[in-house]
Simulated assay, not measured.
Amino acid sequence: MHKLLVLYPHPRDPEAFREYYETTHLPLAAQLPGVLAWRYSFDVHGEPESPYFAIFEAEFADAEALAAAMASPEGKAVQADVPNYATGGAVVLDYPLVTR
C-alpha cells in the first residue's frame, strides 16, 4: 500500500477554500485512476496550534500506481487545479505503508 498525503496551510479565505475544494477539486481527485480510497478533513489539530488548515489522504496499491495516476490526464488536471484554491500552498508527501 502506498499513501499520498497533502497538507494545506491556512488559506487567505477559508470559506472559499472549503467551497471550491468540496465542489470542484475533490470530484477531480475522485477520478484518479488506481485510487483505492481517499479521505480529507478540515478539522486539523496540533500542539500548540496546527500550521495546517486541511489534510487529504489517498491510497494506492504501490508507488507505481501513484506515479501512473499523477501522470494521467486526470492527475495532471488535479495538480493544475491546486493554485485555484490553495492560496496558502500545499505540502505533498507520498510514502509506502509499513504494517506489522
Rank of each mutant, 00 (worst) to 15 (best):
E59W: 15
R12I: 15
G46V: 08
L28H: 04
L36K: 11
A30V: 09
E15D: 12
A63L: 03
A69M: 08
Y52G: 04
H25T: 07
A86D: 05
E74D: 14
Q31R: 15
M1F: 13
L66K: 00
T87S: 14
F53R: 01
V92H: 06
D43N: 15
A69P: 14
G89I: 00
K76W: 00
Y85L: 07
P96H: 14
W38V: 06
S50L: 02
K3I: 14
A90Q: 12
V78G: 00
L93D: 04
T24C: 13
L7I: 04
S50K: 06
R18E: 06
L66Y: 03
G34W: 02
A16E: 06
L4M: 09
S41K: 04
A65G: 04
V92P: 03
P83N: 05
P48G: 05
P27I: 13
L66C: 02
L28N: 13
E57A: 06
W38M: 15
A77F: 06
G88K: 10
D62K: 04
A90Y: 02
E74P: 04
V92T: 14
P9C: 09
L5P: 07
R39W: 14
K3G: 09
M70Q: 09
F42K: 00
L28K: 10
K3A: 15
A80Q: 12
A71V: 00
Y40W: 15
D94L: 06
D81Y: 01
D13K: 13
M70F: 07
L97P: 13
V82P: 08
L97S: 12
H25G: 04
L28S: 11
P14F: 03
P27W: 12
E15A: 15
V44C: 02
A90V: 07
A90D: 01
L4K: 10
L66H: 00
A58Q: 05
P96N: 09
I55F: 09
P27G: 03
R100Q: 13
H45C: 12
G89H: 01
E49R: 15
A63V: 04
S41F: 04
E59D: 14
Y40T: 10
A58L: 06
H25M: 11
P83R: 03
A61M: 03
Y21A: 04
E47F: 11
L66P: 00
Y21S: 11
F17C: 11
Q79S: 15
A86T: 08
P33C: 09
Y21D: 05
P96K: 10
R18I: 07
A77Y: 10
E57P: 01
A69S: 02
S72T: 05
V44W: 02
E47G: 13
L97H: 13
F60E: 03
A67Q: 10
L28F: 10
L66E: 00
L7K: 05
A54H: 01
G34Q: 08
L32I: 02
L66I: 05
A77E: 12
N84K: 12
T24I: 12
M1D: 08
A58T: 06
P27H: 05
L5V: 06
L26K: 04
E49Y: 14
D94A: 10
A30P: 08
P33D: 03
A69N: 05
P48H: 07
D94Q: 10
A77D: 03
E74H: 13
L66V: 06
V35I: 13
L28G: 03
V91N: 11
P96E: 14
F56Q: 12
L36I: 04
D81S: 08
P9E: 06
D13V: 09
A16D: 12
L4F: 11
P51T: 08
V98E: 14
T24H: 15
T99R: 15
